[in-house]
Simulated assay, not measured.
Amino acid sequence: MVEALSEMHVEAARIQQEIQDHLGLRSADIVFEFSTLDGKVKLDLITINPKHNQAFLLHSETGSDKVDVLKKMLRYVQDYKEKENSYTIQWVAKGETELNTSYFRASNIMDALQKLYYGRDMNTITVFSVVLNPIS
C-alpha cells in the first residue's frame, strides 16, 4: 500500500514536470491546484505572469485520481493550441493606470473572460478589449 502510494506520488510529480516543461514555464510561474468535487479530483492549472504578477486559469480538468487528472491535463496542454481559439484581452487592475495585455486559449470569448477573472472579484479588473486573434 505504501509502495503504491509512493509510486503514485512519483508518477504525479513526473507528469507535473512534463506539463511545466511543455508549457515552458518556471516552477514559480505555474500552480497545480487540486481539489475534490463529488468524489472526483479537480485540477485547476494556474499560470502566473511574472511581468504584472497576476494569476490566471489556464485550464481545469477532472479525473478519478491525481494521476488520472494530471494525464488529462498533459493531453490538453499538448494539443490545446490546435483545438482552441487565441484571444487577446487588454485590461487594467483596479487602482492602477497601466494597460495590461494577456493572451488566452479558449473555446469562446466567455471562456477567455472566465480564465481572466478566475479566483478574483470581477470588480478588480476593468476589461478594455477582447479580440479573437487570427488563425496563423
Results as ranks from 00 to 15, higher is better:
Ile125Asn: 01
Asn85Pro: 06
Ala12Phe: 08
Lys42Ile: 12
Gly119His: 08
Val92Asn: 05
Ser6Asp: 14
Lys71Met: 03
Ile89Pro: 00
Ser64Leu: 08
Tyr80Gln: 03
Trp91Gly: 00
Ala4Glu: 10
Thr47Glu: 08
Ala106Lys: 06
Gly24Leu: 09
Val131Phe: 03
Ile48Ala: 13
Asp29Thr: 11
Thr124Ala: 13
Val31Ser: 14
Ser102Gly: 11
Arg105Tyr: 03
Glu96Tyr: 07
Leu70Arg: 02
Leu58Ala: 08
Met1Ser: 13
Tyr103His: 13
Ser35Glu: 05
Ile30Arg: 06
Ser102Trp: 00
Val92Ala: 09
Met110Phe: 12
Thr36Ala: 07
Ser27Lys: 14
Leu57Lys: 15
Ser107Val: 12
Tyr76Pro: 06
Leu99Pro: 02
Val92Pro: 06
Ser64Pro: 03
Tyr80Lys: 01
Phe32Gln: 15
Gly63Gln: 05
Thr97Pro: 05
Glu18Pro: 12
Trp91Ala: 06
Ala4Cys: 07
Asn108Gln: 07
Ala55Pro: 10
Ile19Gly: 09
Leu43Gln: 09
Asn108Lys: 07
Ala28Gln: 14
Leu116Thr: 11
Lys81Asn: 01
Gln78Glu: 06
Ala93Leu: 10
Met73Asp: 00
Ser136Thr: 13
Ile15His: 03
Lys115Gln: 09
Asp29Tyr: 11
Lys72Gly: 04
Ser102Asn: 04
Ile46Lys: 10
Leu70Cys: 01
Ile125Leu: 01
Trp91Ile: 04
Ser60Trp: 03
Val10Ala: 03
Leu132Ser: 08
Thr62Val: 15
Glu3Met: 12
Leu99Ser: 01
Gln54Pro: 04
Met122Ala: 12
Asn85Thr: 10
Gly63Tyr: 10
Asn49Cys: 05
Thr47Lys: 11
Asn53Gln: 10
Val31Asp: 10
Leu23Arg: 03
Arg75Leu: 07
Lys40Ser: 13
Thr97Val: 07
Leu45Pro: 05
Leu116Pro: 04
Asp38Lys: 14
Asp29Ser: 15
Met1Tyr: 10
Ser6Thr: 08
Ser27Tyr: 11
Lys71Gln: 03
His59Leu: 07
Thr126Tyr: 07
Ile15Phe: 00
Ser6Gly: 09
Leu116Gly: 01
Gly63Arg: 01
Leu43Asp: 15
Leu57Gln: 04
Glu82Asp: 02
Val67Pro: 00
Ala93Gln: 09
Val131Gly: 07
Val127Ser: 03
Val2Arg: 09
Leu45Gln: 12
